[in-house]
């Protein structure tokens, strides 16, 4: 009897899957923006439904390259908000879902917020690390993810390369000499990495929880967020207040871009809303929320000075300054057989 009941209930409990068909928008994003978009989406839903019909923003997060791949193979994203322009370029190139000039369609190269690359060291800074040049000392262990798989790591790598270039160019050396030095510099840096994780969060765990390495190279927004989160959870504070942030003299301006996916919004008839959604990022509401979640606002004049105080001032260069474009940087440095492949050899035993 018991058996028959169980058997029956198994078949009877097939529920119907029904999805409500209210207006919605899917934002496909990368990992560190979770907290920011959670709050921003609520604001946008309020704003949009005050003058239009109700809307629901659906949100997806994963690694930036993974998300680009998912959109190419059919994830129905109305908008993408990824870690680097190269990932949206790939979508444009491989699927033609949006035109290749997408980056010109919104202000500040379609980046409503920016970030940069900074260091996290252990309390008291025992290895005396103050700038990129300290990272190539032979007794320093550096933690960063693998540029082959991680968007953050590409920014890290290019930041180090740019720093080395700049230091030689400032000494009035020739371009070729500076390039040669930059390669040596980055080679020395990579020699100091004991373990290359696949993603930024993985590296943070290696550094913070597994206690490996003297310095972690990471996103400014990740470092600030991790700090805030760690100090919030009281039980963990004793273990995690053992770090401090170090700001290098020069770093790269990381510009995470956003774009409407034209073919998808046209099919779903959501273009008007999708464009309004991205434009809303450039309003005082969007900019203030970005600052609150540790992204540097692209339009700082819209945000209170007080709220900008968390961002340290440092000299920043752009990718275009030294590398031309993402496509070029990718081809030279990260493609198979590029400089990273030439430099990186797994440590011999």
């Amino acid at each position: 009897m018991l058996f028959k009941l169980l058997f029956l209930s198994c078949f009877l409990c097939i529920p119907s899957i029904c999805f409500s068909k209210t207006l919605d928008l899917l934002n496909v994003s990368y990992d560190p923006t979770r907290e920011f978009y959670k709050e921003f989406n609520r604001e946008f839903e309020k704003y949009w439904s005050s003058s239009n019909s109700a809307v629901k923003i659906r949100q997806s997060h994963s690694g930036s390259a993974t998300q680009a791949r998912a959109v190419i193979s059919g994830l129905q994203a109305d908008v993408v908000t990824l870690a680097l322009a190269y990932d949206i370029d790939i979508i444009a190139k491989e699927s033609q879902l949006l035109p290749s000039n997408w980056q010109q369609r919104l202000p500040n190269n379609s980046s409503p917020y920016t970030s940069t690359i900074i260091f996290l060291v252990r309390k008291g800074n025992p290895k005396n690390i103050h700038d990129w040049s300290d990272l190539i000392k032979s007794n320093v262990e550096v933690i960063m993810p693998n540029p082959k798989t991680s968007g953050a790591a590409r920014w890290n790598y290019l930041a180090a390369w740019g720093y080395a270039l700049q230091s030689k160019l400032a000494e009035k050396k020739s371009n070729a000499a500076a390039e040669k030095y930059a390669k040596e510099f980055v080679t020395a840096l990579i020699k100091n990495i004991p373990v290359l994780d696949t993603g930024a969060r993985g590296s943070t765990t290696t550094f913070v929880n597994r206690n490996i390495g003297d310095v972690l190279i990471t996103w400014e927004n990740e470092a600030l967020l991790a700090f805030q989160q760690m100090s919030k959870s009281s039980s963990a504070s004793s273990a995690h207040s053992q770090f401090e942030i170090v700001i290098p003299s020069l770093s790269i301006l990381a510009r995470p871009p956003v774009a409407v996916i034209d073919k998808i919004v046209d099919k779903r008839k959501s273009r008007e809303m999708a464009e309004a959604y991205l434009k809303y990022l450039y309003t005082p509401v969007g900019q203030r929320l970005a600052a609150k979640h540790f992204f540097r606002p692209a339009l700082p004049e819209l945000v209170d000075k007080k709220e900008l105080a968390i961002f340290p001032t440092l000299k920043l260069f752009t990718l275009e300054d030294f590398f031309g474009s993402w496509e070029k940087a990718h081809k030279i440095h990260f493609a198979d057989g590029g400089t990273f492949d030439q430099i990186y050899r797994p440590h011999a035993p």
């Binding site: 659906r58 998912a70 994830l75």
Partner: peptide, 11 residues
């Protein structure tokens, strides 16, 4: 499941 999910929150 992680590969085919699309990671859409609440969905």
């Amino acid at each position: 499941v992680a590969v085919v999910s699309g990671h859409i929150r609440g969905e």
